[in-house]
Design a protein around this nucleic acid. Sequence first.
DNA 1: CTGGTTCTCTGACTAAGGTCAGGGAATGGA
DNA 2: TCCATTCCCTGACCTTAGTCAGAGAACCAG
Lengths: 291, 291
Amino acid sequence: MDAGLVGRVRRFNRTVTQRIGVLNDAYLARGRSLGQSRVLWEIGPEGIEVRSLRARLDLDSGYLSRLLRALETDGLVVVEADETDARVRRIRLTPAGAVERAELDVRSDELAASILRPLDDAQRDRLVVAMAEVERLFVASLVEVTATDPAHADARHCLRAYAAELDRRFPGGFDLGTAHPAHLSPPAGLLLVARLHGEPVGCGGLVFRGEGVAEIKRVWVAASMRGLGLGRRLVTELESTATEHGANLLRLDSNRALPEAARLYRSAGYQEVAPFNDDPYAQLWFAKTIA
Amino acid sequence: MDAGLVGRVRRFNRTVTQRIGVLNDAYLARGRSLGQSRVLWEIGPEGIEVRSLRARLDLDSGYLSRLLRALETDGLVVVEADETDARVRRIRLTPAGAVERAELDVRSDELAASILRPLDDAQRDRLVVAMAEVERLFVASLVEVTATDPAHADARHCLRAYAAELDRRFPGGFDLGTAHPAHLSPPAGLLLVARLHGEPVGCGGLVFRGEGVAEIKRVWVAASMRGLGLGRRLVTELESTATEHGANLLRLDSNRALPEAARLYRSAGYQEVAPFNDDPYAQLWFAKTIA
DNA sequence: CTGGTTCTCTGACTAAGGTCAGGGAATGGA
DNA sequence: TCCATTCCCTGACCTTAGTCAGAGAACCAG
């Protein structure tokens, strides 16, 4: 990797963590320990189950239990058994706890404001624009793409969302019909799922048709993640996976109701070709020869 | 302050500290405590005095002493008395210590690379550009401007640098001459010094001429800090300070050899006026009426 | 030479963060 | 019904981070 780029990222890391990281901790946890503050913050207004809190903050069960006990004796939270499963415990903020949490909110605002305050209006605008760009690209870099069994809950979530979106956007609706996802499992094919913090946010499938031909299927990106280059990344990873499986020709069909898909494929080097199937939803056919 | 801007800064803080902050600590200090790693890193290849290490990391003297003892028993550093002052102790890295420090360097690179890796070339370039912008504006927001006695070491550093720069840039050189800085002290005037992490990086003076007239003098910004809007900020703060002292007309003289200064004053609303003094270095005169 | 100051170190102590083993209640599937 | 599992809790323990008081050596100004 380009050493110049790496060096600049390191510089950024140093400057920015100095400014936020250090403060964030000390600042936000005034009067209360950082652990307690983090828990208080994460509980949120609707309450939360202890187990999901533990997962989210990645805390040891004994440690979290003690933190909750401390918050409880301070009268900031109440811990009660879940209605449906008495093993599970739910935490709620008391009014006093909500006040403390609001206080954290104010401090967080304060910290943000203290960064903006010394700047003039033009600088503030430039800063916010640049921050948004960095944030988007950071989020993009946090996405992990892994081959996943189509029967896995995450995969099914993606495939369902894919079908729902097509149904919404195609003038005549869309029905996956009898199409069984089995053809997306090895050895007939495979499915890549993109995840952000463990949550599925996109997918892309591949079906091997034999004789070096593979078909791209079911490429979908969550609405909240569009514009981050995730579609492009899925296609690129599908291509390299296809190559690993001995394919040298990739093809796919699409629909005129999805102009952004056609744009993506064209810019990735796919060219429109004659129809190679009679799929009722197919209106455009693309192909690309890969190394 | 605009709540939308604050909210966006907070979003950025959250995403970015999640990505770097958390990692930075745990990651970099693998196998060794964060405190020891920080010290090891800060020692650097040339060694350092214990007292400056203490100042730089803001550590308790007892605590640092213990950290050094631990590093010493691990054979990573040697602590020896300073040659000229036996109270002061100097720390050097042993070869083993240098290896460990290099290891930290590699991990830091790794962290940066792990952010870049999932991105394509175009995204990497965009990220680095946006990071540079954020970093510059963060640095700008870290600068603190305070009124300072012109006799203070920081102030003298700035005034010396100011004179040296003019001497370098004026065709005929520049000599502050007998100009005593006393006129930059209250009540005759004042001097603002801009500091980054306690280091002086800029200044700007004000001299009160009576009858609501104040003169801007000795505006200087360190070469490393140019392009961050610091000059503009100094002028703005000089203006508000002048207002507080009852001035309603600000004026200043400048020289054609400093085009960026003239540009700054013009864009800040200063207009060229007839000469109001016969300073041998003055070639341009500006004035602005303030609220 | 003296007394105050600077610099580092040691001892004693505290709080926070975190790990690990095990126990008891609730649950769900065979 | 019984047994394995899930979920949370408690007790015991450890490291790191950090504070504070004071001691001792070196230095410096008078």
